[in-house]
Design a protein around this nucleic acid. Structure first.
Lengths: 300, 300
DNA sequence: CTGAAAGCGCTTACAG
DNA sequence: CTGAAAGCGCTTACAG
């Protein structure tokens, strides 16, 4: 189909090279949803290191479907890829892959997995976010969680609960089941309204759900931040286009991609890697949070 | 590195298969910016057809850099991919690829290129958008354009101008150089303010720039849609989370991906394809446009 | 119908 | 130091 020799010169046949060298020069990046803007900056970091190392990256989109995940992992068995970066929080079935297949988990760690991990310290970040809301004078702070069974959900809930407990606010702990999508946040609002002691602040599992909570609250006749302080998590690019601009936790997504790719390269070179590698996060204070004293009377 | 035989069974060696068959079973998808949500739904359509046909898709992110584009095209020369879907609006340099390399352009067509194209009829969609604003009573309608040298920009400008001319509003044609990013829209506002005959409506090259225009207008003390009707293009998922919800043109992005992949499959099978293939678009009327008569007095 | 052999285009260990 | 040969794991055309 292709002439190896064209006007502009020669190009090695990758298939022959792969066969002879027994490696593909390709890294498999597995993520649950390519349309989620959270991943694109991580991808960008991965790509830049890969390009520099003359490695190709192959993106596998699981769409959160286990069967697709297995299909994608085939690339590791049939030699199309030499190693993988797992962003989907799921470990490959035991025995499916050769032992010592180089793999690194990113962002969502896998509980009990020996795989090296690169990401944000979610528990610490959630702890700090909650403490930040407490420092604004809020005492009744609700947490709209991520999806069940997700490690990010577990870590962020635990950081939230820890901060509440330490501040003597155990009785005010209020976790509302949410999810990572706008709609999940919007739907969480009715549960929020039903709380016996009405919260004055809401810490959400991510930016999308925080935006949903805000729109839901507005739909119920409330104003953010006047009536409720709301905080997101991730600092996706849209969070400052959103109105009001969202207070959130910034994750160093590009650097996470870079470090994870470097860790994988080390593994592929037979070296060890430290784990977990946590990159610094920080609170981005914008317009959806306010000191409690600044609140006006809530319309009833 | 990999044992062909593992506990769960055998997996063919792709490299050997590729070498022997002289094809990779891989499609190269070239796009300028993977983080742009506009592309993700197109990708989803491409992926679904590819999965069904047991083809692998390889994503190449040019980042709008010509050198990266050339690197990515190498995959077509070295046998890593059998054909390509071009979403970046740039033709491969003549002579670089073997003749008859199967390729289809998506979304942004390439002027003068013989490659088959699948997308939206941008001129018609822009024409209809402008006519919609005219039907609301607006006469002074500005157009914030896309980036120079982009075919989408050319097509949308031309549809806008055509509608204005046909409505006898040639004298009111007002094109402001913009771009496809939020910031471009925001920056276009000062030029908008400087127009001798102040526009009452703004048709923007895409949703992001429309959101930028709206925030910019708000920053200048105006209200959308009361003082200005603003319209976007694309109907990205964020356009209904944005406040006020954005009136825009919906493109059938998923279907565009599906049709483009099918067209490429036809080419690879030695068949002909019709071109261009335009998928239906439609106006999504939301909260950023209002009849002119509904306007209040503009604060001066 | 079945099974052994050739050959895809590389890389690398080896002979000269 | 140089150059010819072996072999990676498949597929397929061919011999039996």
């Amino acid at each position: 189909m292709f002439d190896a020799v064209t006007e502009t010169g020669y190009s090695v046949n990758t298939a022959a090279q792969m066969l002879r060298r027994n490696r593909s020069g390709t890294i498999l990046v597995i993520l649950p949803d390519i349309s989620n803007p959270f991943f694109s900056e991580i991808l960008s970091g991965i790509e830049n290191v890969a390009t520099h190392e003359k490695l190709t990256i192959l993106i596998g989109n699981t769409n959160s479907e286990p069967e697709r995940f297995l299909n994608i992992l085939e690339n590791l068995r049939n030699g199309r890829a030499d190693g993988a970066l797992l962003l989907n929080g799921v470990a490959p079935p035991v025995g499916m892959l050769p032992e010592h297949t180089p793999m690194v988990t990113i962002s969502e760690s896998i509980a009990g997995s020996p795989l090296p991990h690169v990401g944000t310290d979610n528990e610490a970040a959630a702890y700090e976010s909650t403490r930040y809301l407490i420092s604004l004078g809020h005492k009744s702070i609700a947490h709209v969680t991520g999806p069940d069974g997700n490690q990010l959900t577990t870590d962020r809930r635990s950081g939230y609960a820890k901060a509440m407990r330490e501040a003597g606010l155990s009785d005010n702990i209020c976790e509302i089941r949410g999810g990572f999508e706008f709609q999940n946040g919007k739907e969480a609002v009715s549960a929020l309204m039903r709380q016996p002691t009405k919260p004055t602040a809401v810490f959400c599992a991510n930016d999308e759900s925080a935006m949903g909570v805000i729109r839901g609250l507005e739909g119920a006749g409330y104003n953010v931040p006047r009536d409720y302080s709301v905080m997101g998590f991730d600092n996706v690019s849209f969070s400052h286009i959103f109105s009001p601009e969202l207070t959130t936790i910034h994750q160093a997504r590009y650097e996470i991609g870079v470090k994870a790719m470097q860790a994988l390269l080390a593994l592929m070179g037979g070296q060890e890697t430290e784990s977990p590698i946590f990159l610094p996060h920080k609170i981005i204070e914008r317009s959806t949070t306010l000191p409690l004293t600044g609140r006006k009377v809530v319309p009833e």
